[in-house]
Design a protein around this nucleic acid. Sequence first.
DNA 1: GACAATAGACAGATTATCGAACCAATATGG
DNA 2: CCATATTGGTTCGATAATCTGTCTATTGTC
Lengths: 149, 149
Amino acid sequence: MSEDSPVRGPNLGLLCFFPYRAMEARVMDALAEAGYDDITLAQSRVFQRVGPNGTRVTDLAEQARISKQTATFLVDQLERAGYVERVPDPVDARARLVRIAARGEACVAIARVVESEVEAEWTRHLGKRDADHLRRALTRLREVTDPYG
Amino acid sequence: MSEDSPVRGPNLGLLCFFPYRAMEARVMDALAEAGYDDITLAQSRVFQRVGPNGTRVTDLAEQARISKQTATFLVDQLERAGYVERVPDPVDARARLVRIAARGEACVAIARVVESEVEAEWTRHLGKRDADHLRRALTRLREVTDPYG
DNA sequence: GACAATAGACAGATTATCGAACCAATATGG
DNA sequence: CCATATTGGTTCGATAATCTGTCTATTGTC
């Protein structure tokens, strides 16, 4: 007995899941609302990892924790739908860089807005002080939970 | 210009994603290590929502945000593998309660241990004070991000 | 230059997911 | 107390997502 574990509810990983899923859903909803209803969740999870200067399919796969075959499959679809484009990697003739195309940039813009809105809601709920604290804690936690951080 | 957004990195939703994924991976690895290598990620996401007194397939579907057809499909596999069992709901003859079976209880036990270990690691990294603070903030955030919280 | 490693793509199979249709039991409203 | 709507669950068929294995082209190493 004693006061070992004072019934503190779900574990920290699961507690992180709820905000993550909520944010993802809000962004996807907003995109669909704005007419970008042909992008799937799986595609978006690859898409959101494309860096500003382009990213290799292999890197996208590693970061999204999917096989590179699956990444290729999803990038194919994103490319066909006009969200990304593939350009040759200037420093490695084997590789091709996945880059965000015009249609994709429009989505990024929408996503940024929605993310800000949701964060503002959360900040209202928690208070600015705790919200800032939360962000700092999560940023530090990333050091030990994301090898690509 | 000014000091509007001082380059603060990923949005809060994405920041929550890394610990969530890390925890999930650690638990799944431990289960596979212990011989429970026939449970998939999709199955586990349904499984972990089965309550101590049993849960209806419909409720599992809602909480996991999947269709009840998919939930039925995954529960079928969990049942065939011996992780859960279906029993009639004593108060509603239409419904059946999904309950954790013997093989499932063994997994829950392992998961609890791993979750504690990982939380301990995170607490070491953040410090007890900030870890507690993080838990409280996430718990409060759940109020606005999880309709089933 | 030979050989291992890397980037990417293709092929086939499996798993996960959804929408539609359906049945049985329960709730609702005269 | 029955007619009807609702709810819980399943089955069926189609599609999306994912993996393993294999292949080619290029790069890096010694």
